[in-house]
């Protein structure tokens, strides 16, 4: 079976901090990592490979040359080959344009099943996976937590806020995986060294142009545009209430819980 996994290299946003004095983003020194949900996608692919004999995992990333290290890591985790989809023409793509480009690349490589992460921690959009599926005209299930192979289909557990759906989905299809998909295994030193020898291939606009409309990629092919961005205002000073009766205290806390939509 031909398993394709899409990964994105992202800044580790859990390490992002604001300069306490200037209130601006400290960008320097932030590490780049494989997006956690995408890593869960790789784990899912490895699991699928274990279940279906003769499977091969191809990992794909779209991004600048620095994204190679993310692909190397995926190879060290056990993927068999990697593709970097990279071209100046792809720059400035929003989710729709990105999914259009990736769909073309995936079509070119060929697949039985595509696995992406649910969402990336830098943008948190959760859009690219379902959009790829739509471009390729295949069904998808997002927020997948577990799965098993069932003949010509997968049986997956799809997570919602309040429930799970157990869904049977036929190949070819696309899944978006959630972090916490099984245990993320550590790399091994030997795996990293071994990955150095695996092949990394490159796809650029020229390679994909038969499958792409130039008007649908890059800045030009992106319906959404960023007007401006700014750092969030700092957390305002909290409120301190004293001398309340028990009921008032409970009301004040309940008002907060409702405001925060915790209730």
């Amino acid at each position: 079976m031909k398993i394709l996994v899409c990964v994105k290299q992202v800044p580790d946003t859990s390490e992002v901090t604001l300069d306490p004095i200037t209130n601006t983003l400290i960008r320097k020194g932030i590490k780049s990592i494989i997006n956690p949900d995408d890593k869960a996608g790789i784990e899912a692919a490895l699991k699928l490979k274990d279940q279906v004999e003769g499977s091969q995992i191809t990992v794909i990333s779209m991004g600048p040359k620095q994204a190679e290290i993310a692909l190397r890591e995926a190879l060290a985790m056990g993927c068999d080959e990697g593709y970097l989809v990279s071209d100046r023409k792809f720059g400035g793509s929003d989710t729709l344009a990105t999914s259009t480009i990736l769909a073309a690349a995936l079509k070119k490589i060929g697949f039985d099943v595509i696995i992406t992460g649910r969402q990336a921690i830098d943008g948190d959009t959760a859009q690219v996976g379902p959009q790829i599926a739509e471009h390729l005209k295949i069904p998808h299930v997002s927020y997948v937590e577990e799965f098993e192979v069932d003949g010509d289909a997968l049986i997956v557990l799809r997570q919602f806020e309040d429930r799970y759906h157990k869904i049977r989905i036929k190949f070819p299809c696309l899944l978006t995986a959630i972090s916490g998909f099984g245990e993320i295994k550590y790399l091994t030193v030997a795996g990293v060294i071994e990955a150095e020898k695996k092949e990394l291939k490159y796809l650029n606009y020229e390679d994909l142009k038969d499958l792409l409309d130039e008007g649908c990629i890059g800045l030009k092919g992106s319906p959404t545009k960023v007007v401006k961005s700014y750092t969030k205002e700092q957390k305002s000073q909290g409120t301190l209430l004293k001398g309340l009766t028990t009921n008032e205290a409970v009301d004040a806390i309940m008002a907060r819980l409702k405001e925060g939509h915790i209730l």
């Binding site: 729709l96 999914s99 943008g123 959760a126 859009q127 959009q131 997570q159 992106s222």
Partner: peptide
């Protein structure tokens, strides 16, 4: 922006080719 809206929105946006801003 729930697990339903975030599944449905992208699929529609790709089908009719329009922009979708998440969250």
């Amino acid at each position: 922006a729930t697990s339903i809206g975030r599944d449905l929105g992208p699929r529609i946006s790709a089908r009719i080719r329009t922009g979708l801003t998440a969250d």
